[in-house]
Nucleic acid binder design. Structure first.
Lengths: 96, 96
DNA sequence: CCAACATATGAACAGATGTTCATGCTATTC
DNA sequence: GAATAGCATGAACATCTGTTCATATGTTGG
């Protein structure tokens, strides 16, 4: 798999609204699965499914703490990409 | 449509390998549809279909010049996002 | 105007993707 | 150690998406 496909894979993961909300929910601080489900309004099962994909692509990292598992955005690249396109989206809204 | 869905829409567009190659092909300088097709190895028809989506989302801008139409990445946000995740992908490869 | 060239569009199809429902697994508390 | 809380997993399904093939649209040169 070449770089382009790796990149595309990451973008595709961020390209689903539910998954994007999950990512944004744990952008700044680790959040438990339950908290993410509550924050995003998605079912626990769905959140878990998505987290698995995000974890497999190393976009988030999860650590177990007693019964709960806390997930957080993997690194600064991910955070930067999200913040960057957030600005772009904001500008799009303003100009249309 | 809220910001998250706008963002997700853009990410989804970048999340297809063919479309990502098209975007990368016209990242730095405007390229004709034919040139993009040649550079990416995709058919003219397919490239045109994808360019329509990218144009609709304002990720690229196209200007007609005689018989050809030249497309280029819309702005610096788009370029930054792509370059940023390229670095991320490169690091991923190195560390696995 | 006609022929050619470059790009755009439409229909149709196979394969991928997000979601739900039900169930399994791990860790804790009593 | 049974019961419960929190999370993960599997199957199944409807929908969406990328691609191809054929054809239309627009543009330039003779």
């Amino acid at each position: 798999m070449d770089d382009v496909e790796v990149m595309a894979g990451m973008f595709r993961l961020m390209g689903d609204p539910t998954r994007l909300r999950i990512l944004l929910a744990c952008l700044d601080a680790p959040q438990s699965v339950g908290a993410i489900a509550a924050a995003t309004g998605a079912s626990q099962s769905l959140v878990s499914h998505h987290l698995r994909l995000l974890r497999a692509a190393r976009l988030v990292a999860g650590t177990r703490e007693a019964r709960q598992v806390f997930y957080v955005a993997a690194d600064d690249h991910v955070r930067d990409v999200l913040r960057n396109l957030m600005h772009h989206a904001a500008e799009e809204r303003r100009s249309t």
